[in-house]
Computed example of a mutant assay.
Amino acid sequence: MYIDSHQHFWNYDPKRDAWITDQMSAIQRDFTPKDLEVLLKQCNLDGCVAVQSDQSEDETHFLLSLADQYDFIKGVVGWVDLLKENLEERLSYFSTFDKFKGIRHIVQDEPLGFMGNQGFENGIGCLGAFNMTYDILIKPPQLAEAIRLVDKFPKQKFVLDHIAKPRISKGLDYKWASEIKELANRENLYCKVSGMVTETDNFKWTSDDFTVFLELVTEAFGTDRIMFGSDWPVCLLAASYQQVHSIISDFYSPLDLDKVMGENAVRFYNL
């Protein structure tokens, strides 16, 4: 089973989705499962994992309702307030949905030090009892925090989104590379090769721009802990779905593609 481990759906709301600026007009519209289903078939993918983009339980319910309607949505990574006192109650509730697999908080927008917040750590500590994963969405300056967080929870399943969003057009940054290698030593952490095309200057790129990043991440994590994610529809700012898919499918050997395009996501998210 080949899986897109990272994509989004939304009914566009200018107020709620204010992060989609006028400079991102290409994605200022609705994106539905019917839109994605065509693209998955074109790329011979069997399903996807829908990931939150709005920090609300309303959106989590929206994604779960879509997953009920469309069998190819194999899992949902939603949002629950990890800082709330009633967190365990909310996790218990969402655990009753078969396709609810994990939690993501948009940490990239939080101040440095957020992941060391006692309340946030307490929230992460509750996930294991419900067999829920956690998607780490950060930028390079937050990598050191991520290392400390993963160290505190060696039995929690983590996945790093978008290889921590390095500035692709600037070339390989030593500090990012060093911290990625250090983070990859934690075997409970996986990594999504996703979100790279939108980390380019003016969204201009060639496939060769990504090679050194893919080589480093693959060497660090190995092909057993890497998974493909399109980051559709955000990727459309810089590339088509097919182009994003080709960057990964052209880089890995057919044997490794079975893992990167499917087996690893199935295992990590228990699809």
Rank of each mutant, 00 (worst) to 15 (best):
H6G: 12
Q7L: 13
H8I: 01
W10R: 04
N11T: 12
T21Y: 11
Q23N: 13
D35Q: 09
E37S: 13
L39A: 04
N44G: 02
G47W: 06
C48Q: 02
Q52E: 07
H61D: 09
L66Y: 15
A67E: 02
K74D: 01
V80A: 03
N86R: 08
R90H: 13
F94M: 05
F97W: 12
R104N: 12
G113N: 10
F114K: 10
Q118M: 08
F120A: 08
G123H: 06
F130H: 09
A146N: 10
A146W: 03
D151E: 15
K155A: 08
K155C: 02
F158P: 04
I163E: 04
P166E: 00
R167V: 03
K170C: 01
Y174A: 14
K175G: 03
A177W: 05
L183S: 01
Y190V: 00
C191N: 10
M196S: 07
T200Y: 09
D201W: 03
N202H: 07
F203K: 07
D209T: 01
T223W: 02
S230R: 03
V234T: 04
Y241F: 14
V244Y: 04
S249C: 12
F251N: 12
Y252H: 09
L255A: 15
D256V: 00
V260M: 06
M261V: 00
R267A: 08
Y269H: 11
N270I: 04
